[in-house]
Amino acid sequence: MRSLTYLEAIREGLLQEIKRDKKVFMLGEDIGHFGGPFKVTQGFLEEFGQKRIIDTPICESGFIGFAVGAALFGLRPVVEIQFFDFVACGFNQIVNYAAKCKYRWGANVPLVIRGPMGAGNRAGPFHSQSEEIWFGHTPGLKVVMPATPYDAKGLIKAAIRDNDPVIYFEHKNLYRRIRGEVPEEDYIVPIGKAKVVQEGKDITIVTYGAMLHKVLEVIKEKELADISCEVVDLRTIYPLDTETIINSVKKTSRLLTVHEDSKTFGPAGEITQRVCEYAFDYLSAPPVRATSIDTPIPQSPTLEDRYLPSNTDIKKAIRKILDY
């Protein structure tokens, strides 16, 4: 099968959906001729014209609200946030409008908000954040974060076809670094379904996004050769696929959660709590989390490396659980 980069897979998913459904259109800052800072939408304007690919002024609150309005009345907007950190400027329109129109009015908001997130690029505190929990904690939204090209294409298509607002996170460090097999044909990856990426029997490692690749790299290291790790890629942050996590922990009896988001009130807390609620009796060690630390994201490479969970942090966490 063909191999595509993560970025190419997102592009293909978007292109196919724009072609498939006339109601789908895109809007955002510099997505037209410029193609966005990471060139995800390069060539889209030339192919689909200004009615489908709309360059907006710099006004996140304005164009997100605009997209909610369009979604309420029959269109399927896909909003690009140039760097996901900037979504904070449009917060009200997402958490009060997009998320609550169905609940308040019974009205569908088939809206996708997508864009690059994540650290590791020495880009400092306003261009590196993990924002999933801002939205994962807001009922009415769905939140997805693919880690592989296959899932990136399948999830963007699922997100666009979904009748609820979906926040779709793309880790900018995966765009050109990660390649994988992607079928050319139409397929979707269902929202709300995690995936067991590697089977194992000693410990369950739940992760998602760029951290999936780090975890897969770490568990191959010699020092861990005696440990059989089962790796679960969440793919969707909300709704959380509790069943897949619980089934895995029932099998391995141990849980490590790894995420790039900072620690306190991060997804690991929720995942651990669910495991405690539904599989406490199966646990043979207290669950552990390896996450970023509770600070903003520094620009300095030495500080950013300290901020992010390192290979050593993950290895230590695995050992700690196994040695309990």
Partner: peptide
């Protein structure tokens, strides 16, 4: 800014 922010900050 002690390397916390870089050019943008």
């Amino acid at each position: 800014c002690h390397g916390m922010g870089g050019s943008l900050h």
